[in-house]
Design a protein around this nucleic acid. Structure first.
Lengths: 196, 196
DNA sequence: CTACGTTTTCTAGCATTGCTAGATTTTTGC
DNA sequence: GCAAAAATCTAGCAATGCTAGAAAACGTAG
């Protein structure tokens, strides 16, 4: 039952849905999440508010979630690319690159990153129904740790702690809780502790 | 010009201000910050909304800040008590106790903790105009690290990173991003990385 | 005790928010 | 070309943070 007309319509709908998510993300990055209102979003895509709800029945929160999922795909992509076997690095360098790419993402897309972790999705990194990209990112950390000269005994726990540590540093950096301009030294210190 | 009547009035005002902050904190811990509305707060203290603004001219955000400041005093108190010289511990145990008391606070007062770090107060831990309790807590971490067998070269940076790591673990734990029930193992892993 | 002036408090309302029911327009299928 | 169906819009609700102006309570002087 996929007539050309129906296919065309489906494509237009998917297109519009992407525009909604893109508009939400752009607005959030430019003016913060509190500026992402349903009225502004509907203005941005040139439709009225109820159209948003035809795409996202749960409303605003579901749109934020969509942005978060996009962000997870990007972050996981960056992290997996960092640990790709073709650019083989010694174990410690691999961990460092991973941490750097993570912090880089959080720094360049603060609102998106905020959505990814403020959300109470309540799903562990390594569970069965974890969003695929999140799980990929977690596995990238596990792989990097496994490549160390002296890998930790409990890889999963170590990966969770490393993720937590990097996440905390990213958060406090963003909140300007750290002394300004010492980010590189902090990264070095953080990596030093985990590659030991 | 401190007549008894004026003093009494000042005391009553201070009392009411405390009730506002306490009500906000209780409501946030019970139902989350989105449930902390000016109407509910004024109901809780038995006055109308404008009374809130006579105490906190900047409105709701200033009340949240007051809760955050209270939390910082408590957290700093717990951390400083942990590192008190009377209960002298070996360096590593001191760091472990510090981390544990920190995570314990975040776990028992999640909404208060959220206010403390979601706020864009934009003040570093170790700056001149940092809230006193935050600075005390930071110094407690520095002191604990200094007491290690092999203290890190750059104490301030190491303390920032340790704070960030613990903060990240606290946040992800709260967001249920970690595998359930392994908190103790994570704490052990975290401490292990920072004490040697 | 009264009457006035000050201070405190409340009532009522504004603009904005997320969201939705019902009317209206557009598209579809024959 | 026309009726059924789908898509979209208009208009509105309840709740939010916040505030101006009315009302009440208070303090002080006579």
């Amino acid at each position: 039952m996929t007539t050309p007309a129906a296919a065309h319509k489906a494509r237009r709908l998917a297109e519009r849905e992407k525009r909604i998510v893109a508009a939400a993300r752009a607005l959030a990055e430019e003016q913060g999440w509190e500026a992402v209102t349903t009225r502004r979003l509907s203005d941005a895509i040139g439709y009225s508010q109820p159209v948003l709800y035809s795409h996202f029945p749960e409303g605003r929160s579901q749109i934020v979630t969509a942005v978060a999922l996009d962000g997870m795909v990007e972050l996981a992509g960056a992290m997996v690319a960092t640990t790709a076997p073709d650019r083989a690095r010694p174990g410690a360098e691999c961990v460092r690159a991973l941490v750097t790419s993570y912090l880089d993402f959080a720094d360049r897309h603060p609102a998106t990153y905020e959505a990814m972790f403020r959300l109470p999705i309540g799903v562990p990194f390594a569970s069965a129904d974890t969003p695929r990209p999140l799980r990929d990112a977690f596995e990238a950390i596990v792989a990097a740790l496994r490549g160390l000269d002296r890998p930790p005994a409990d890889l999963e726990t170590a990966a969770e702690v490393l993720w937590g540590a990097v996440h905390g540093v990213a958060t406090l950096e963003r909140a300007a809780r750290f002394s300004p301009g010492n980010q590189e030294r902090r990264v070095a210190e953080l990596v030093r502790h985990f590659v030991d």
